[in-house]
Amino acid sequence: MKTTVLFLITLFLTLALLLSDTPAQDYTTWSLPDGATMRLGKGSIGNITRIGNIAFSPDGTRLAVGGAIGIWIYDVRPGKEKELDLIAGHTQSILSIAYSPDANTIAASSTNDGTVNLWNAVTGERQTTLEGHTDAVYSIAYSPDGKILATGSCDNTARLWDAHTGEHKTTLSGHSGDVMSVTFSPDGKTLATGSRDNTACLWDVQTGTHKITLKEHTKNVDAVAFSPNGETLATSSYDNTVRLWDAMTGQHKKH
């Protein structure tokens, strides 16, 4: 009996010593499939019904991954992949993340609290909190010049904010369902929004006025994107279609 107990104690101590010498980041490379270089995040990765909670830095060297306890920051340069930091401060799982064009700030929203936090991307310190939405913020986007931040919420509105001070600039009201996606045109003059009311809308960023409503989809519009030249808007929907529109006139082009 004593021999068995001594053996178990010795085995336990040996394993403890081995584990204490194991690098903390080894989980990132354990049992990876062929072609994979790194495992990102720990535990739940945000809200499992959404894919909007990861974002590359503008230069492509960093990746922010939203999880249940915060935002993991990774160095993703080839051959140098490693975990850099955890930005903790949100009280719930991360829904949406966006890097500012200068890569100095990370904007992030979390489940159901209606707020957006702006974080210093280098130090991880909170810069400011944007408050005004009354329900979860599903989508965040910076204007190309980095001066304006757009947010889309389950309160059926999108909002525009001063990206540096956090000051609320205007509320874009017109959708009758959750605003699932927001994106700026390449020139920053137009904002497109996609909603669970089955429509997409185009808005004048400077004045906040509604320009056009795009109505051909039969189910939720969950993503919107401009072409690089800004002439075409693409929308994707739960009706299993992607549609192309003239971004100036709103004319339906193809699906």
Results as ranks from 00 to 15, higher is better:
S109C: 10
N112H: 12
N112Y: 07
G114T: 07
T115W: 06
V116Y: 08
N117P: 07
W119S: 05
A121N: 01
A121F: 02
A121S: 04
V122T: 15
V122W: 07
T123Y: 14
T123E: 13
E125V: 13
E125I: 11
R126I: 14
R126T: 13
R126G: 12
Q127L: 14
Q127C: 10
Q127T: 03
T129R: 05
T129F: 08
E131R: 14
E131D: 12
E131H: 09
T134N: 15
Y138N: 13
Y138A: 05
S139G: 08
S139Q: 08
I140S: 14
I140H: 13
I140N: 13
I140L: 15
A141Q: 13
Y142L: 04
S143F: 08
S143M: 11
P144R: 09
D145M: 05
D145P: 12
K147S: 14
K147C: 03
K147T: 14
I148D: 02
L149K: 03
L149R: 09
T151L: 08
G152W: 02
G152L: 05
G152S: 01
C154R: 10
C154T: 04
C154E: 10
D155E: 11
D155C: 06
N156Q: 12
T157F: 15
A158R: 03
L160V: 05
L160H: 09
W161D: 11
W161M: 11
H164C: 02
H164P: 04
T165A: 10
G166C: 03
G166I: 08
G166N: 08
E167R: 10
E167P: 13
H168V: 07
K169R: 15
T170P: 02
L172G: 03
S173K: 13
G174F: 05
S176Q: 06
S176W: 03
S176Y: 07
G177F: 05
D178Q: 14
D178K: 03
M180Y: 13
M180P: 02
V182A: 05
V182T: 03
V182H: 06
S185C: 04
P186S: 05
P186I: 01
D187V: 08
D187P: 04
G188T: 08
K189R: 03
K189M: 01
T190C: 00
L191K: 03
L191C: 00
A192I: 01
A192H: 00
T193F: 01
S195M: 11
S195F: 11
